[in-house]
Design a protein around this nucleic acid. Sequence first.
DNA 1: CAGTGAGCGAGCTTCCGCTTGACTT
Length: 773
Amino acid sequence: MGKNLVIVESPAKAKTIEGYLGKDYEVQSSYGHVRDLPRDDFAIDIENNFEPTYKISADKKDVVKQLKKLAASAETVYLASDDDREGEAISWHLSQALELNDSNTRRIVFREITKNAIQNALLNPRGIDIDLVNAQQARRILDRLVGYELSPILWKKIKTGLSAGRVQSVAVRLVVEREREIEKFEATSSFKITALFDLGGGKTLKAELPSKFKTQGDADTFLKKCIGAAYTIENLETKPAKKTPAPPFTTSTLQQEASRKLSFPVSLTMSVAQKLYEAGKISYMRTDSVNLSQEAIQSAKSQIAMSYGSEFAQERHFKTKSQGAQEAHEAIRPTDFSVTSAGKDSAEQRLYELIWKRAIASQMADAQLEKTTATIGISTTPEKLVAQGEVIKFEGFLKVYIESTDDEDDEEQQQGMLPPLSVGQDLDLKRMIAKEGFTRHPPRYTEASLVKKLEEMGIGRPSTYAPTISTIIKRNYVEKESREGTERAYQELILENGAIETHKQTEITGAEKNKLFPTNTGVVVNDFLVQYFPNVIDFSFTAKVEEEFDHIATGKVDWTEMIKDFYNQFHPLVEDTSQIKRSEAVSAREIGIDPASGKMVYGKLGKYGAYVQIGEMEEEEKPKFASLRAGQLLENISLEDALELFKLPREVGSFEDKPIIAAIGRFGPYIRHDGKFVSLKKDQDPLSVSEEEAIELIQEKREQDANKYIKTFDEDAEVFVLNGRYGPYIKFGKKNVKIPKDKVPEELTFEECKELAEKTPEKKGRFSRRKSK
DNA sequence: CAGTGAGCGAGCTTCCGCTTGACTT
């Protein structure tokens, strides 16, 4: 009489559930999928109905062994993986890998981790839904076909190590196309009128003209009309308004809000949330659901009643808006609403607070507002000025939580209360301003706003949003960057004391913080894919195949037929592209004619990055080459900027009979002398560094280097004790060795260094998951 | 922290979704 075995996906979940079930149940976790297509093999037999070969993943061997043992002695095995496509497949893979018997294997599902839900699930077991499993297999195999057939084309035609896929390639496309919109964008300006009235007693009233003027002339004409005019309140209108709380967090909205309010990159948000989840503080953090369990809603309600009063509570049920949501879990919420703060460090505490507030607010009453609009007539012209104010009559959920937006145009939003006014009241104009404003280009994506966009399009899943962003950055398709703004002039006309003055002002515009910019590689790869594989990288591709997966899941379509149809149109395109030459895939751009030589200047993407070239390969005089600098894009670099690149590296002068060279390297501008490098400050232009400055820098660097070496040894010239960024360390040939706390760096002997070096393991490669062939 | 940019070819790279730890410069 063995126990019953329940297998779930996550160990934290297993622990919670074990607490709900009696002694007769042992709850274990599979740690997600246990089998998959191996990484180092295509593993799909195209000829044989796309038969996949699954392997138990290397890091799951122990898990499978352990589960198999437990299953063998269990009375009943309950497969309790998530209630969605992937979860069904996990159960199926488990039944295969663990060689379970149909007779004592049950499939159970629940969408919330509450005692009731679990017990209910145990009372309603079913079998594995093989149609749903097949939908997952179709998804898996399609992704493998696309990824593993497209990527090698990129290696051959563009650069090794590149990758393409159903999700990542669309993400890159979004960033590239947004950049093109921005490049194409032309700002137009208009003049906005703001009036300030003096109400006496130190009080003022701010009003605006609802429409803007297109030209400075129009604005000036208007202001002229206003000279000496009388201003009267013609109408006062008060309207009730309300605000409604946002639903509790999903993975995507949590990432967005943590990005806006806490400046967290999406990967940090996920790892901090993971810690809170493992500590039992929050519900599962990879979810696309906005639902809360009835228990959670009740608990939120009593917490709200206790802290703020029962008039603040309002039970709400939200509906998901995103395409393809599978809703296998609850929304992200605190496990216990009475815990108002939790977390081991400030990051955890701040994220918890955000989650707590958002979930609590989602069950709170609307905020009741009163909006007042005052219309102000001008005696000399029919145009009306408008002043708006807002009063909160009942705070409702605003007591706890205010959602932020991506909109940067928020400066006008601080509507306060209006001072007491009455119809017919005459107003005393203090000042009227016509300020020139400019239209803005569409915003560049942040990590989080790109995730939002992907989710809206139904591309990717909660568990892959953060990894997708990491992948496109790692492949160097996009870069996360901040850029300083540039100064821009604008006009301001001020009417004061019956006279109009014109001022030329300047403002900083176009500053960007942590935005995603496409790289040259990203642009070239994207254009290649768009040209040769338009269907696969189409924005609606995922939506279309998802529809077909749904048909497979309901048993209407056979999965091998669906994959066959796809492959029959996809693979010929792959064959076709193998014919094209690299030069066609990576087309050169003609930037312009070099006035000095009369030759054409080209922009190209080489194996080592983007470069410009003057002249042709075939000509007798070989072409000159120069690499592009960070942030320069091949597709819009100007001829001037391209020619500028040929001025570096440049000989600045000489020192100790050796030349000093200034150039720009991978880490920024530098000067080189006698084989040694000195970095220049970021704002220092290597084109204008003088010989004197350069020599000074070289000498400074020498002094620094002199302090760097603590000890050298006669036994081996390749061994040093030196000062590094993180303190003293031993450099033993190629190995860097940390010095233990009980050793004094100055007193280390050669023997000791050698001993320490031998103890430290060889540096591992960046790819720790090396496969053995 | 170079100079490279064509093409050949050994041997490498690559997908998406489900999970959690190892790893340090």
